[in-house]
Nucleic acid binder design. Sequence first.
DNA 1: ATATTTTCGGATGTTTTTGTCCTAATTAAA
DNA 2: TTTAATTAGGACAAAAACATCCGAAAATAT
Lengths: 144, 144
Amino acid sequence: MLSKTCEYAVRAMIYIAQQSKNGSRVNVKQIASNIDSPELFIGKILQGLSKKGLLQSLPGRYGGFYINDAEAKISLADIVIAIDGDKIFNGCGVGLDYCSEKKPCPIHDEYKKARNAVYKIYKEATLAQFRESVNKGEIRLKRV
Amino acid sequence: MLSKTCEYAVRAMIYIAQQSKNGSRVNVKQIASNIDSPELFIGKILQGLSKKGLLQSLPGRYGGFYINDAEAKISLADIVIAIDGDKIFNGCGVGLDYCSEKKPCPIHDEYKKARNAVYKIYKEATLAQFRESVNKGEIRLKRV
DNA sequence: ATATTTTCGGATGTTTTTGTCCTAATTAAA
DNA sequence: TTTAATTAGGACAAAAACATCCGAAAATAT
């Protein structure tokens, strides 16, 4: 399960990807109101992702956040790993550090399959994909 | 991903199930040292599970925790739900409360499949199963 | 140049999760 | 019945996650 921080990040990135189709920028106020997140908090989160190069930011009047064509190739998995790390995709099903191919835990093999399926989903969902569904009403990012 | 509390609970329950094969009880000190958890904390966790009827406890000298044949039928999923709730098995992949069959989020369908696979694994792993593998060295519950 | 609007960065505050402490109640052996 | 060893329960403490505040820096329109 993703952390709350990570959920905000994923939804914000999807929103920004949609909005920056033609180079336009969105500010934190817009983002927060469109994804139902605390404004200052999503600001901090995006600052971090921006530092890591997952999106662009421009300070100053008429500034904001945006995503260029190169960044549109990034996947939800990239965002998740940047925020929560890769434990969700690699970790053991019962929390054992030693658990591995060589020293599997009781549910290792099946759990690994399921985990990989989850990874595949997040990996194959790229921001570019979400741009496609702009304005079709297919995507709604508010929580309720 | 399970909470730390939940991971401790799952490992403790597996350990207790193994140990109480012939009605014997284990105390928190034994449990903690065998699953690598804080002693007092796992005590608290098991008290909670005991109240909910997922295992038996006996206070007093020579007391401890144990699992009877009826409880051996419970699955890891039952434990997870008792501690972390069912959000991990039912929740949306990007944290949207409204997300459902009728109003799916962008990754709803595939995510649901993967989530169901995870549920199946935890559901089919019963404590009775783990009793089978006692002393075969198949199960190791210490973290490292 | 100046005013305005935005992100940046660091400190701070709040809530939840994780973990501990202490005393009481309970049980069984001696 | 006494004693020792254990769980029960409630308060407390520490750490991590979540969230806000404030002043500085940056960018653009005027």
